[in-house]
C-alpha cells in the first residue's frame, strides 16, 4: 500500500516538473487525424474516404503539419471480395488454368492492392509457369507488405526460398 502511494506521489511530482518545464511554450498544432495516443498497430483493410470541402476556405498555414505519426498501417488483409477472387484463382490454378488464375488475381489486386496475399498468390501462379524471375519479384513485393505479421512473412519467406532454389 505504501509502495503504491509512493509511486503515485513520484509520478505526480515528475508530471508537475514536466509541466513546469513546458509551460512557457505555446501549444502545439495538431492534425485532426492524429492523437496523443501511441499509434495503434491496427490492421486497416480499407482506406478512409473523405468528402471535399468547399473551395472557399483560406490556405492553411502549417495547421496540418504532421507533428504526430499518421495512423500506422502495419498490414492490409484482402477484402471479402478479394478473398473470393483469390479462391477462384486458386481453384483455376489447381485445375491447370494458370492464365485464368492470373486474371482473377489481377482483379483481386484492383480490389485490395495493398494486400500481400494477392502478390504471394501471383508469385505462386508465376512459379507454376516456371517464370522464376517474376515469381521472385512478386515474393519480394508480398514481403514488403507483410508489416508486422510474422506468420505471413514466414509464408512469403518460404515461397521466396523455394523460388530462388529453382531460379538458381
Amino acid at each position: 500500500m505504501i509502495r503504491v502511494f509512493h509511486r503515485n506521489v513520484l509520478t505526480g511530482l515528475s508530471f508537475c516538473l514536466l509541466l513546469s518545464a513546458c509551460a512557457a511554450q505555446p501549444p502545439m498544432p495538431r492534425p485532426p487525424q492524429s492523437s496523443n495516443q501511441t499509434p495503434p498497430s491496427t490492421t486497416v483493410t480499407r482506406p478512409a474516404v473523405t468528402q471535399p470541402v468547399p473551395p472557399s476556405q483560406p490556405i492553411p498555414e502549417r495547421s496540418a503539419k504532421p507533428v504526430s505519426p499518421p495512423q500506422e498501417v502495419s498490414r492490409v488483409l484482402p477484402s471479402a471480395t478479394a478473398q473470393s477472387m483469390l479462391a477462384k484463382a486458386d481453384s483455376s490454378l489447381q485445375s491447370g488454368q494458370t492464365e485464368a488464375a492470373l486474371m482473377w488475381l489481377e482483379r483481386a489486386q484492383r480490389v485490395s492492392p495493398s494486400a500481400g496475399e494477392v502478390y504471394l498468390a501471383m508469385a505462386k501462379a508465376r512459379a507454376s509457369l516456371e517464370q522464376w524471375a517474376e515469381a521472385e519479384q512478386l515474393c519480394l513485393k508480398a514481403q514488403s507488405l507483410a508489416g508486422r505479421d510474422q506468420a505471413f512473412r514466414q509464408r512469403v519467406d518460404e515461397m521466396l526460398a523455394r523460388v530462388r532454389r529453382r531460379h538458381s
Binding site: P32, A48, I59
Partner: peptide, 17 residues
Amino acid sequence: REGTARSIYSRFSSDVV
C-alpha cells in the same frame, strides 16, 4: 501538409492524407 502544395487543404479536409 506543410509545403508548397498546402493550398490543397483549402479544398479538402485535413483528415485525408
